[in-house]
Write a protein that binds this DNA or RNA. Structure first.
Length: 185
DNA sequence: CCCTGATTCGC
DNA sequence: GCGAATCAGG
């Protein structure tokens, strides 16, 4: 019986595997379960990993070398209350659920429409006024008309588009290992 | 707003 | 050793 929250050999190995595989800390945390992304990152650093695809010869990580600032941290954490809600503060780790949508093949729709404006809810579409940094900037319609909108869906980190439009924008012909199915007993 | 990893430091 | 809080960046 593996105690949840304990770094057993299995969990450490899985951690190494997933980390070297390119998965983010939150994804690994979600996959491992009972741990937050902070725990994963902390363990990664303790194991001497980190840097992931970094050359050991290079070293001199800008962040590590950077003196940063003097963090006069004030440990005032009144979070210790009788109402211990495990799902209250979990945001990042639980945001990515390990569950995946296995493409409902039951539907008689083998190939989705190649159109870029295929299935975009109107409620999601926004004008440039409502566009936020985290929103997808995929243009929809004629920019010269008042009907011009943006996708407005949640954009991927560091990307201007959402996951859906990112695939359209960048067609690498190769799938990322983000949504690869895991085979665990 | 969302996310990412890096670091610190009380436990 | 562990990981929450925090930081710094995208």
């Amino acid at each position: 019986m593996n105690e949840a929250g304990a770094w057993t050999e299995e969990r450490v190995e899985l951690l190494k595997k997933l980390w070297s595989d390119g998965l983010s800390a939150s994804q690994i945390a979600a996959e491992l379960g009972s741990v937050t992304r902070n725990a994963v990152i902390g363990k990664v650093h303790r194991l001497g990993l980190s840097g992931r695809a970094k050359n050991p010869a290079a070293a001199s990580t800008p962040r590590a070398a950077a003196p940063r600032k003097a963090p006069t941290r004030s440990p005032s954490h009144p979070m210790g209350g009788p109402s211990s809600n495990p799902g209250a503060m979990t945001r990042g780790a639980n945001a990515l659920a390990p569950q995946y949508a296995p493409e409902p093949e039951a539907q008689a729709e083998p190939e989705p429409a190649p159109s870029e404006d295929v299935v975009i809810p109107f409620s999601e579409r926004v004008t440039i006024m409502d566009l936020r940094e985290y929103m997808c900037r995929w243009p929809m319609g004629d920019p010269t008309t008042a009907e011009f909108r943006f996708c407005g869906s949640r954009s991927q980190t560091g990307l201007p588009y959402c996951s859906y439009h990112s695939r359209i924008a960048y067609q690498p012909a190769a799938d990322r290992r983000r949504d690869r199915s895991k085979v665990r007993a």
